[in-house]
């Protein structure tokens, strides 16, 4: 089940809010000793909010890094779609993948907002190696490289979310990016799934 379908726009956001509540409770429990000490000093609310804010802030930074990369992926697919190098069938798939990245942005941005942050905006311009894109295979190799990198980026982010439900959401996106990568490799005539493990 994808949590990123447009008809379920609030699910990731809701997950983030619920998890934040859970996290606030957990953080309050985990820091009991420090909180108790702080309470004696009359500053327990600051002690709690500082820790939870740090964790939430880190999650927002990770989410915004992901959003920035997703914006770039949308722009890259746009470049490919407008290149005139893609056959009709391939173009259709590329546009579909671009749509997925847009959905990722939408879901991630809602999560950022639910954590009290501001979602990263798309850049006005992106610098792509246009001079290297001469054939359809060049475009597909470029896209496959970005998708492969995205899988690694999400794999690297999943363990460091303070909010474990965000890790689960990132895993869902990772799976989608991995499917994109496999399809692109297949079209390029490469083994779509080159190994049992990904690193």
């Amino acid at each position: 089940m994808s949590i990123l379908k447009p008809e379920q726009p609030g699910l990731l956001e809701e997950t983030a809010i619920n998890s934040r509540r859970k996290f606030l409770l957990q953080a309050g429990t985990a820091t009991f000793s420090a909180t108790a000490i702080a309470l004696l000093g009359g500053c327990n609310s600051k002690a709690i909010s500082a820790e939870t804010n740090d964790a939430a802030s880190q999650d927002v930074r990770i989410l915004n890094t992901a959003i920035s990369a997703e914006h770039e992926a949308v722009a890259a697919y746009q470049l490919g779609a407008e290149s005139g190098l893609l056959q009709a069938g391939i173009l259709k798939v590329a546009v579909q993948f671009q749509g997925h990245h847009k959905e990722h942005i939408e879901a991630l941005a809602k999560a950022v907002k639910s954590l009290g942050g501001n979602p990263a905006e798309a850049k006005k311009d992106y610098s792509f190696p246009v001079e290297k894109l001469k054939r359809q295979s060049d475009v597909l190799e470029f896209a496959a490289g970005l998708e492969r990198g995205a899988v690694s980026a999400y794999a690297g982010a999943i363990p460091v979310f303070g909010n474990r439900d965000l890790s689960a959401a990132a895993a869902s996106i990772l799976a989608d990016e991995a499917m994109h990568w496999a399809v692109l490799r297949n079209v390029l005539g490469l083994d779509p799934v080159p190994g049992a493990f990904f690193s």
């Binding site: 990369a69 770039e72 992106y126 990198g149 690694s152």
Partner: peptide, 15 residues
């Protein structure tokens, strides 16, 4: 380095 290229490249500022 292939695992870095979602965000980095040698010659360009990206994410």
């Amino acid at each position: 380095y292939a695992s870095c290229i979602a965000c980095h490249s040698p010659e360009r500022n990206r994410t």
